[in-house]
Design a protein around this nucleic acid. Structure first.
Length: 509
RNA sequence: GCCCCGUUCGUCUAGUUGGCCUAGGACGCAAGAUUUUCAUUCUUGAAAUCAGGGGUUCGAAUCCCCUACGGGGUACCA
């Protein structure tokens, strides 16, 4: 019987979610939605030592911002809860016991110190210590110790861990949906700890138990999990869950843009781009890490950019809506090699999506920035400004650089432009033009266009030269959109005042 | 060290049943066009002997082997 597709995103709350993690979640989401399945959020907080307050809320908020909604999970609920592993503690204990009973796992009483000493010793002999079939016979565990000794130790609450008993000389085959068949020999794998001495399971146990109990059909996760998948497969076998074992798909990693290695937290600040979706303030150090949201990225752009970083629909275009991504998505089009993040392309994506964003909405976003600067203009005016300048912007906050002159008259004039364009006769030309504009009762841009062109023709002055001077008067620089549109939006009074001020201020004698 | 995964323009990639690949697209870069300016936009261009070397084949980016390089794993972290 075909099972309903169920995938999970299972981050551990050890800090802000990495952008690579966001991509993993996105691929899970796309896969689920493409196949009419469920997308589940499970929090893997089995390591109490690394728990960071606020991290779970950060994760929730990230997906809220991106508008990728979970069907089940922490803070949302569902039929397979609880969805936080710390709330499932008792469950794992029971399953660990099952493995002990079926002789697939055993108690180990070796202390950390003993193990460390062992590792050091092996290292000094240029060997690698591994807790496995070759060494377990000589260590302190329920295989080597007499039964009543084991019972006594457990009764006395001696700290112990439960380790998986890896069989010797077994080949484990992983059938990865992205990579195909991967084979591993059990002799190279060690008896991983499944249950820690603090009463919590490790990732391996909790993950397999939860995926089974939550009816997960596809495990889509980062490539760093590929090596331990052999253990996971053995666990499904040990539990006799092979019938409903999920399919595995291991994603390539996100690499740093320069040099080599996995994209890390530090790269962001070093190279000037966010590696986190949202801003994050470390609760311990107060260190601030920037986020895509606060840097002005649009969620749609981030999703589009991330989707194409390691996956490609094979079409000759790059812009896809979430709906398109869902219908186009398939695991077999995921690339095998790690992808380097490209800041320039990320900006380009944002530019594309910024252009699609309605002017009214952009005007509202922009008004927030304006208010912070103590500028309060009518939203309709702001919307018109946005209409004129948005195509030259990739981010909302760039609107200010491109349009500040619409709100504040220039208080200085670009010297280079003066030097190049301003003539001794310009002051007089502009003065006369101001008088001419003053008697207009229509200040529409096409009227202005006609009036000014006639003026230039009449006086036989150079078009480019004069227009640049007029622009300088209104803008202060040689930049900005169509000059007649600027004058129109500024209005008659403001336009004339700016011309007069420029005439008074600029002198080349 | 050992194990696993990978390797096409600077970057993301197309190429998945070997021939239509003198290797396509996008970002970025360069030049030109448009414009009163800056940008946008448009056009054109440079850019990968398909990591290298061996095979297999009439024919290989596509299949096999080796080497190199890159990445991941090797914790009572996930």
């Amino acid at each position: 019987m075909e099972r309903k597709v169920r995938v999970r995103f299972a981050p551990s709350p050890t800090g802000p979610l990495h952008i690579g993690g966001v991509r993993t979640a996105l691929y899970n989401y796309l896969f689920a939605k493409k196949n009419g399945g469920d997308f589940i959020l499970r929090i893997e907080d089995t390591d109490q030592g690394r728990f960071v307050p606020g991290a779970e809320e950060y994760i929730i908020e990230t997906f809220k911002w991106l508008n990728l909604n979970f069907d089940e999970g922490v803070q949302k609920g569902g039929d397979y809860g609880p969805y936080r592993q710390s709330d499932r503690k008792e469950i794992y204990k029971e399953y660990a016991q099952r493995l002990i009973d079926s002789k697939n796992a055993y108690y180990a009483f070796d202390t950390n110190e003993e193990l460390d000493a062992m590792r050091k010793q092996y290292e000094s002999e240029k060997k690698t210590f591994q807790y496995d079939s070759s060494t377990r016979e000589s260590l302190k565990n329920s295989i080597t110790l007499p039964q009543d000794e084991v019972k006594r130790l457990l009764k006395e609450n001696t700290p112990y861990v439960i380790r998986f008993l890896f069989p010797k000389d077994t080949t484990i085959e992983i059938d990865d949906l992205i990579r195909g068949k991967v084979k591993m020999n059990s002799n190279l794998l060690d008896d991983k700890v499944l249950f820690k001495s603090d009463g919590m399971p490790t990732y391996h146990l909790a993950n397999v138990v939860d995926d089974h109990l939550m009816n997960i059909t596809h495990v889509i996760r980062g490539e760093e999990w590929l090596p331990s998948t052999a253990l996971h497969i053995m666990l499904y076998k040990a539990f006799d869950w092979e019938e409903t074992k999920p399919e595995f798909a291991h994603l390539p990693l996100l690499l740093k843009p320069d040099g080599n290695g996995k994209l890390s937290k530090r790269d962001g600040d070093r190279l000037g781009f966010p590696v986190f979706p949202l801003i994050w303030v470390d609760p311990k150090t107060n260190e601030v890490s920037s986020g895509y949201r606060e840097s002005g990225y649009l969620p749609e752009a981030v999703i589009n950019m991330l989707a194409l970083l390691g996956w490609n629909p094979g079409l000759d275009r790059d812009i896809f809506s979430l709906e398109e991504l869902i219908s186009l998505f398939s695991l077999d089009r995921i690339s095998l090699s790690g992808a380097k993040f490209d800041l320039e392309k990320a900006k380009w994506f944002n530019h594309q999506y910024l252009q699609q964003r309605p002017n009214r909405v952009l005007a509202e976003d922009f008004s927030v920035i304006l208010k912070e600067k103590g500028i309060d203009f009518d939203i309709n005016y702001v919307e018109k400004v946005v209409y004129l300048v948005k195509e030259r912007c990739s981010f909302v906050n760039e609107l200010w650089e491109q349009s500040s002159f619409f709100f504040i008259a220039p208080n200085s004039y670009d010297e280079k432009v003066i030097k190049k364009r301003w003539k001794p006769s310009t002051n007089d030309d502009l003065y006369v033009l101001a008088e001419r504009l003053n008697i207009l009762d229509n200040f529409e841009s096409n009227t202005l266009n006609e009036t000014i062109h006639n003026f230039i023709e009449e006086r036989e002055i150079n078009l480019g030269q004069f227009m640049n001077c007029l622009r300088l008067s209104l803008v202060g620089k040689a930049m900005g959109p169509d000059l007649f549109e600027i004058a129109h939006l500024l209005g008659k009074k403001e336009t004339i005042e700016r011309i007069e001020r420029a005439v008074k201020t600029i002198s080349i004698i």
